[in-house]
């Protein structure tokens, strides 16, 4: 469903990704680990279409289409969801408004009518429960004044409502205490489905105790330097990244 081939990306002419290749099949959970500065967040930004990045070489094919040709909102409507490392606060826009605007944008893209108001509320409330959030959150401004854990939970809530095909989790575990991590992970696990793939970007192995990946990749200096099963994460936990970084060169 996602095929990244020899991806080279620069920011202000500075190379960040230097030939990254990665294939994700439907239903698979892939984890990308790596040291700071390896290009992990750049990968998530490029996939979601954030401005400011230049692709100098390579390709990204999503569901048989050229992902890089799509505007960010089209990628979202096609089912690509990015859970932000640093979710943005939007004063004056309530969570429920954003959820509805987003859901209707997806439905319109698929040629479906706008969601019925009652149905929408039922869906959203069930997801709120799933993430053990207070319904009051729905009526608060998006992420405004939320704690770190609340913001991350809110990202997963959006994913739960929008039901993406590819869910990119960018450092979703950073800044979470163990309870919040458990809730967020339960939320993510409940979203796992045969047709839904996950790309988890994380610095720590801890997240993978809760969300079991099918494949673990190590990203160092802009490339995947090693891939393996879940046991690779444990090895990384033990040895750190330095033994692999040499292999990037």
């Amino acid at each position: 469903m996602l095929s990244i081939k020899n991806l080279h990306v620069t920011i202000n002419d500075k190379p960040i990704l230097k030939g990254l290749t990665l294939d994700i099949n439907p239903g698979e959970v892939h984890a990308i680990m790596g040291p700071n500065g390896a290009g992990k967040s750049t990968l998530s930004h490029v996939l979601s279409g954030k401005p400011g990045y230049t692709v100098t070489e390579g390709s990204v094919t999503y569901d048989g289409k050229d992902l890089l040709e799509m505007d960010p909102e089209v990628r979202a409507r096609e089912g690509v969801f990015l859970a932000f490392q640093y979710p943005v606060e939007i004063p004056g826009v309530s969570n429920i408004y954003l959820l509805k605007a987003a859901l209707n944008a997806m439905r319109k893209h698929k040629g479906l009518p706008e969601v019925d108001a009652m149905d929408f509320l039922t869906i959203v409330k069930s997801k709120v429960k799933l993430l053990q959030m207070d319904e009051k959150f729905l009526y608060r401004a998006v992420n405004e004044g939320f704690s770190g854990g609340e913001k991350k939970r809110n990202e997963i809530l959006q994913a739960a409502v929008l039901e993406p095909k590819l869910c990119i989790l960018d450092e979703t575990d950073s800044g979470l205490d163990i309870d919040a991590l458990r809730i967020v992970s339960d939320g993510v696990n409940s979203l796992r489905a045969a047709e839904r793939s996950f790309l988890m970007i994380t610095h720590y192995q801890r997240l993978l105790d809760y969300i079991k990946p099918d494949v673990v990749h190590v990203l160092a200096d802009g490339k995947i330097v090693k891939s393996g099963g879940p046991e690779l994460a444990l090895e990384l936990e033990e040895k750190g990244y330095s033994w692999l970084e040499g292999q990037a060169a």
């Binding site: 979601s48 279409g49 954030k50 401005p51 505007d71 960010p72 909102e73 990628r75 979202a76 409507r77 969801f81 990015l82 932000f84 979710p87 943005v88 939007i90 004063p91 004056g92 826009v93 954003l98 605007a101 987003a102 944008a105 997806m106 893209h109 401004a141 959006q158 929008l162």
Partner: peptide
């Protein structure tokens, strides 16, 4: 703020609507 516009785009809202939403919210 461009980061706010992008956040809304990443949720499927087109850029023009995103700007309208943010202006309205302000």
């Amino acid at each position: 703020e461009e980061k706010s516009v992008f956040y809304l785009q990443s949720r499927g809202v087109d850029a023009e609507t995103a700007r309208n939403i943010l202006t309205f919210a302000f």
